[in-house]
């Protein structure tokens, strides 16, 4: 089975994010970028399938800051091929719709059975990427997937629905899956292996001209207003306990 894992880079929250001078994006100059953790789960699930049988894994990502490190790490973990799509502004904000368009125009030329990507990302909290991508490719789609199995020309997927319900359904291939979780925590690629991958493997670059942007224009973004906050209770243990009890009572959480 040919599996493509689409990965994206996100601002690392170790730094405090700031809004840029004209108020239309985060200030990207001083931000470090890391790969989306749900995409890491998608990669891990693909690697588990490769461990179990014969999957061939291609990781694909758009050219974005520090993306090479993400791709080499995927190669070090066992992906067979890494592709970087260029032809857009790598420093700018890539909207989910544009991302789907760029990925789709590459995938149309490439051969695949399954595309896996993270069900969501910090800049795609609605989890649109997988769905829009499937629509553009004209293939089936499932979101919040927590596991899947091969079944000839179909794939059986498990989706996590609300309230702990898991739905099992069958999708004809090819298909796009938005991965919620892998069966295990993402594996470790030792730095030695990442460095070996950098020296011995190459990232294939493909230029895509996907045409103009589909998204609207952002007029203004701003950090959310601070609300509430924590109050530190001071005093002896019994005074603090008294205050806590009072608070619990005043909120109607306890009787008497």
């Amino acid at each position: 089975m040919k599996i493509v894992v689409a990965m994206r880079q996100l601002a690392d929250l170790v730094e405090e994010l700031e809004v840029n001078a004209d108020g239309t994006d985060i200030d990207r100059d001083f931000v470090k970028f890391v790969s989306n953790e749900w995409d890491e789960a998608a990669l891990e699930e693909a690697l588990c399938h490769k461990d179990d049988g014969d999957a061939e894994i291609t990781v694909v990502a758009l050219d974005e800051p520090d993306v090479d490190q993400t791709l080499y790490t995927a190669l070090a973990k066992g992906a067979d091929r890494a592709v970087k799509l260029t032809g857009h502004d790598p420093e700018g904000w890539i909207r989910t719709g544009d991302r789907a368009a760029i990925l789709a125009s590459w995938l149309e030329r490439d051969d695949f059975d399954l595309v896996l990507t993270g069900v969501q990302a910090a800049d795609d909290l609605d989890g649109q990427l997988a769905g829009v991508l499937a629509e553009r490719l004209g293939v089936r789609h499932a979101a919040v997937v927590v596991g899947f199995h091969d079944a000839d020309s179909a794939v059986q997927v498990e989706q996590e629905l609300g309230g702990g319900t898991v739905a099992v359904s069958s999708l004809e291939l090819p298909a796009v899956l938005g991965i919620q979780a892998a069966r295990q925590t993402p594996r470790y690629a030792s730095i030695t292996r990442i460095r070996q991958a950098q020296q011995t493997q190459t990232i294939q670059e493909v230029e895509i001209s996907a045409g103009g942007s589909l998204g609207g224009t952002v007029r203004k973004i701003s950090p959310p207003k601070k609300r509430g906050g924590a109050e530190m209770l001071e005093g002896s243990a019994s005074e603090v306990a008294e205050r806590i009890a009072e608070l619990i009572r005043s909120k109607g959480l306890a009787r008497s």
Partner: peptide, 9 residues
């Protein structure tokens, strides 16, 4: 702890 590659990097 086993990460000589990291140490060298």
């Amino acid at each position: 702890a086993g990460e000589k590659g990291l140490f060298e990097a």
